[in-house]
């Protein structure tokens, strides 16, 4: 309930009205949107029970490892009721052709694979928010100060997910496990996204915000 209450208001895309429509404009709109979404994720992390009790160094380590997985889950959750499009924001949806034209074909394919897996499972909003918190807690950063505190942080979220599934899906005792078994694909998809944005940055075609670059560098 706490995680559902703390869900941030969705961010809207803000395409530059002075730039004519083009593939570059699509990428610019996307990078700007994801940078603002990233700011939201950092603010949201502070409201996950247990996160703020971690040391600042560990909070940074978890976010630096898990931010893209959290962003991917935001996009996935918005796209669950769509069959063809990736819903980056209510006013910013991209289909396969648009992604291909913008050089995001690999990312489209990877995201669609993940989305269809969650669509088949009928992922609920409660599961989305819990998984989103879990990807931060479980981000496998190599440089944490207090692994015990992070383990405890993970255990609390794990317990919340198990409790929820026991009540909501009593007929499927494996549902928690099934959800946790989607995390490798989520990480793989996030890595694909990081690669994509690193490539865009190297190509220098799209300006990126400092925060987004800083977080990409941490990867």
């Amino acid at each position: 309930s706490h995680l559902l209450m703390m869900e941030p208001t969705p961010v809207c895309a803000m395409p530059d009205p002075t730039t004519p429509d083009s593939d570059i404009k699509t990428l610019m709109t996307l990078c700007d949107l994801l940078n603002r979404e990233l700011l939201v994720v950092i603010g949201w992390a502070k409201h996950i029970p247990g996160f703020s009790a971690l040391s600042l160094v560990d909070q940074m380590a978890l976010l630096q490892s898990g931010w893209m997985e959290a962003l991917i889950l935001v996009v996935v959750s918005r796209s669950l009721s769509f069959t063809e499009e990736l819903v980056f924001a209510g006013n910013f949806r991209l289909d396969r052709a648009q992604c291909r034209a913008a050089g995001l074909q690999d990312l489209y394919t990877a995201l669609k694979h993940l989305i269809s897996k969650y669509q088949q499972m009928h992922l609920s909003p409660e599961e989305v928010v819990t998984l989103k918190a879990m990807v931060l807690a479980n981000s496998d950063s190599g440089s944490v100060e207090n692994p015990e505190a992070i383990q405890q942080f993970q255990d609390v979220l794990h317990e919340a997910l198990q409790d929820f599934e026991t009540g909501r899906h009593p007929g499927d005792p494996h549902r928690t496990g099934k959800l946790l078994m989607t995390l490798p694909l989520l990480r793989q998809t996030a890595n694909r996204a990081v690669d994509t944005f690193c490539r865009l940055q190297l190509e220098g075609r799209v300006p990126m915000h400092k925060l987004f670059l800083e977080m990409l560098e941490a990867k």
């Binding site: 700011l39 603010g43 502070k46 600042l56 160094v57 940074m60 976010l63 630096q64 941490a218």
Partner: peptide, 15 residues
């Protein structure tokens, strides 16, 4: 920390 100063600042900010 110096390298990741924006994240550091955002986390220190209480809002």
């Amino acid at each position: 920390k110096e390298k990741h100063k924006i994240l550091h600042r955002l986390l220190q900010n209480s809002s």
